[in-house]
């Protein structure tokens, strides 16, 4: 019962939490915006990792594909922010159409490694092959080209924060629907036992491809939001070294849960924020956290929250039964 209440109130709690943070830490607005965008990115990865059982070391590639799609749109075609996001999602979708037929036939280990390779190709393409379009390492700057949006001008960081929060709310809502839908359950079932899925008559390849596609479109959307937030994009967004960030955030939050990705993003970026204030390079810390989370903490923050709620619930029940006995 408590689990159900948590999942109904989940999106609302998350949004309220972020708004409270916004007013407690008014000078941390850039950080909070990043948390929200990163959550969407982590949710995308969670589809692969938690629902389909694929670990990808290539998520930065999909992120930077989205970011560059938006950036190229702003730099050469127009200034509409919604259009940029749409372009990014469509490019992500087309990319997944091209890649899914190959990737979704692979065993998990090969999938991981091929994605790492994709990431390297992505950096190469954005940094060198398309240098005339993307300006290579100098990055593509376009802040001046963005036009105002009606009602709420999201070009201002203060407004943009609420804008991404709204997108997160919609994303969480759809994500929750997906979790309970036939698609979500068949993805989880495919992760557990693909042979049996074939045996009860489902098309495992297509189910995986749809999940993969959702994952990439979410990453691309997050990429576009990153681009809009920074006003420029450079190839470092898609570097291999950053692949671990999204994996770790997914693990910290709790793999395969609906609200885990948000808490993972918050936990991870929070830690990064604290550590980086007294350490310029933090690979060492990331490594240690990864191992601690995997060995000691494998249900993640969301798992802890659920356990906590479960404890409260059982205590209440005990109190009730005591009263009845009296």
């Amino acid at each position: 019962m408590n689990k159900r209440i948590l999942s109904i109130l989940g999106p609302v709690i998350i949004i309220v939490l972020m708004i409270i943070f916004r007013y407690i830490f008014p000078n941390k607005i850039t950080f909070l915006t990043e948390v929200v965008i990163f959550s969407i990115y982590v949710m995308g990865n969670n589809v692969l990792m938690g629902y389909l059982g694929y670990t990808s070391f290539g998520q930065p590639f999909y992120l930077s594909t989205g970011a560059y799609s938006a950036a190229i749109y702003f730099a050469y075609f127009g200034g509409n922010i919604f259009m940029a996001m749409l372009v990014a999602v469509i490019v992500g979708f087309l990319l997944s159409l091209v890649l899914a037929p190959g990737l979704m036939r692979l065993k998990s280990s090969y999938f991981t490694l091929i994605n790492a390779a994709l990431c390297a190709i992505g950096v190469f393409v954005f940094e060198r092959l398309l240098i005339d379009i993307t300006n290579g390492n100098d990055g593509l700057w376009f802040r001046g080209n963005m036009t105002a949006t009606p009602f709420l001008d999201v070009r201002y960081p203060k407004n943009f924060f609420f804008f991404v929060l709204l997108i997160l709310l919609i994303a969480l809502y759809l994500y929750q629907k997906m979790d309970k839908s036939a698609l979500g359950i068949s993805m989880k079932a495919t992760k557990a036992n693909p042979e049996k899925m074939t045996f009860i008559g489902y098309n495992v390849f297509l189910i995986r491809s749809i999940g993969y596609s959702i994952s990439i479109m979410m990453s691309a959307l997050a990429g576009a939001l990153y681009a809009i937030n920074f006003g420029f994009v450079n190839p470092s967004l898609g570097e291999n070294t950053r692949a671990i960030e999204v994996l770790l955030a997914t693990l910290i939050g709790g793999v395969g849960s609906v609200f885990g990705p948000f808490f993972g993003a918050l936990g991870f970026l929070g830690m990064k924020d604290i550590v980086s204030s007294f350490m310029s390079r933090w690979e060492f810390v990331v490594g240690i956290i990864t191992i601690v989370v995997l060995f000691k903490f494998n249900r993640g923050i969301w798992g802890l929250i659920q356990d906590g709620a479960g404890l409260l619930q059982s205590r209440k029940k005990r109190e009730k039964t005591v009263k009845v006995e009296e």
Partner: peptide
């Protein structure tokens, strides 16, 4: 894979 990657980062 993720554990050994963590070790790599520590290294």
């Amino acid at each position: 894979m993720v554990v050994t990657f963590g070790v790599f980062m520590i290294g």
